[in-house]
Amino acid sequence: MARKLTSALKVAIVIAATSAAFFAIFGGLTYGYTLPNILLFSSLGAILGAIGAPHIEPKAFSHPITWQICFSILGCLLIAFSFQAGSEGYALATIIGGLLGYTAPIWVKHIQGP
């Protein structure tokens, strides 16, 4: 079990890092290479890459829906943190993240890039 988690984590890290780099490069081409833009696009790319990793390499993940729900919630919580939301904002981010993660197998295949 630990070996399966390690391979899934390695695959997710590589896909998230690659996605973050592509989002930062191509987002910068469109919107400019300012530090806030690079941080925004790379963090969006990393979260979307981590959510989409089970779709890209399905054999590495034994429970892909759990993985996608966890990273969707994490991404929404990071957005709530960046907006300095209150407790209601964090609760809403958790609910929305759970819904996004649960439906990720449907929408993740339609993501094309920044």
Rank of each mutant, 00 (worst) to 15 (best):
L100F: 10
G101S: 08
I106N: 09
L100I: 06
I79K: 13
S87A: 12
Q84M: 11
L99F: 09
L92N: 05
L100Y: 00
L100K: 08
S82A: 15
G75H: 06
T103E: 03
G75L: 03
G75P: 05
A85S: 15
I79D: 09
E88I: 11
I79T: 12
C76H: 07
F83Q: 14
S87D: 10
G86A: 08
T94K: 03
A80C: 07
L92K: 04
A104L: 08
C76Y: 01
C76M: 15
F81R: 13
Y102M: 07
C76L: 15
P105V: 07
A85C: 11
L100D: 06
G89C: 01
S82Y: 13
S82D: 10
A104C: 10
G89H: 03
Y90G: 07
A91Y: 06
E88P: 00
A104I: 07
L100A: 10
F81A: 15
Q84Y: 13
A104F: 02
L99Q: 01
I96T: 09
G86H: 00
T103L: 12
I95Y: 01
T94R: 02
A80G: 04
F81H: 12
L77P: 07
T94H: 04
G97T: 00
S87P: 05
Y90V: 08
F81L: 14
Y90A: 03
E88Q: 10
G89T: 04
F83C: 04
L99A: 11
Q84S: 15
G101F: 06
P105C: 08
G101T: 08
I96M: 05
G89L: 05
G75N: 00
Q84R: 14
